[in-house]
Amino acid sequence: MAGFLLRRILGMLIVLLCLLAVTFIIFYVFPANPARDICGKGCTAATVASIDRQLGLNKPLWAQFGQYVSGIFTGRRFGQGSHLVACNFPCFGYSYQDNLPVSTLILQRLPVTASIAVGAAILWLAGGVTIGAVAALKKNTWVDRVVTATSLVGLALPVFLVAIVLLFLLTAKLGVLPDPSYTSIFVNPGAFFTGMIQPWIALAMVYAAVYARFTRAKLIEAMGEQYITTARAKGLRERRTVVHHGLRSAITPVITILGMDFGGLLGGAVIVETVYGLPGIGQLFLQAVDKVDIPVVTGCTLLAGFFVIAANLIVDLVYASLDPRVRLA
C-alpha cells in the first residue's frame, strides 16, 4: 500500500508541475503585454513599467517560471518602497485591482463554492446511486422504466437551464423556496439549506442522471456474478447479498468515473454562482475575466487544477481501499 501511495503522489506532483507550466504559459507568455494585463484597466504607464521590473518580466522565461513557482511556496514581495506588498505563502499572485493577494480573495469566497460543490456532490451521489440501484433491482418493471426515462431527460438538461426553471417554478411561481443565497451553516442552518437547495439540485441533476444509469448497469452486471449465487447459497438475507456483495462491486466503477467529474463539478459551480448571484470563487473568476485581472484569473485556474488533481488522488486511494487487487498488484 505504501508503494502504491508513493507512486500516486509522485504522479500527482508531476501533473501539478505540468499544470503550473501550462498556466504560466497561458497567462504570462501568451498575452502581448502581461504587465499591463496584470495591472488591469486604468493603469498608468509608470505602474506598468514598475510591475515589469518587479515581476522580472524582462528576465528569461525559465527564471520567471522559477520565481512564479517558488512564490507559491515561499511567498513573494512585489514592488519597492511605498508600493511594497507582501504576498505570503501560498502566494498565487497579487491583484492590483483589488489590492489584495489573490489567496485572500479566494479564501473569502471558498465557503460558498465549497458548500455548493459538496452539497451537490452528496446529492447526486446519494441520489443517483440509490435510484440507479433501485432501478437495477426492479429491472424491467415500471419503476425501472420511469427511472430510465427520467435519467434520459435529465441527461439532456444543462445546469443553467435547470437553474432557471427551478427559479421560475419554485421561487417565482410557487414561492416555496426563497431566492437562493448563501448563509453560513454555522450562522443559520435552516437558511443555509433553503438557500442552497436550488443550486444543489441544478448542479446535481445531470450528474444524478448519469450516475443513476451507470449504477443501474453496473449493479445488474454485478448481480449476475457467480459470487452472488454463493452468497445466497450461504443463506444470506437478500438485502445483505444485494448491498454487501452486489452494490459493493458496483460501486468501484462508479468511483472511477467520479474522478472525471470533479472538473465538471467546478465548472458547474461557476455557472450556478452566475445564475443565482452567489458570491463564490466562480463569480470571482468571471468578474476577474471581465476586468482582465490576470493574477486572479491565474490563481483561480490554478486552484481549480489543484483541487481536481488532489480529488483524483483521493478517489484513487478510495478505489484502492475498496478493491484489493489494485493495491496489491
Binding site: 465538471g264 473568476f285 475575466v289 484569473v297 483524483n312
Partner: peptide, 15 residues
Amino acid sequence: LAFPSLIFMIALVAV
C-alpha cells in the same frame, strides 16, 4: 479528461 475544462475554456477566451 480530468481537468476543469470549463474553467480553462473561460480563461483561454479571456486571454
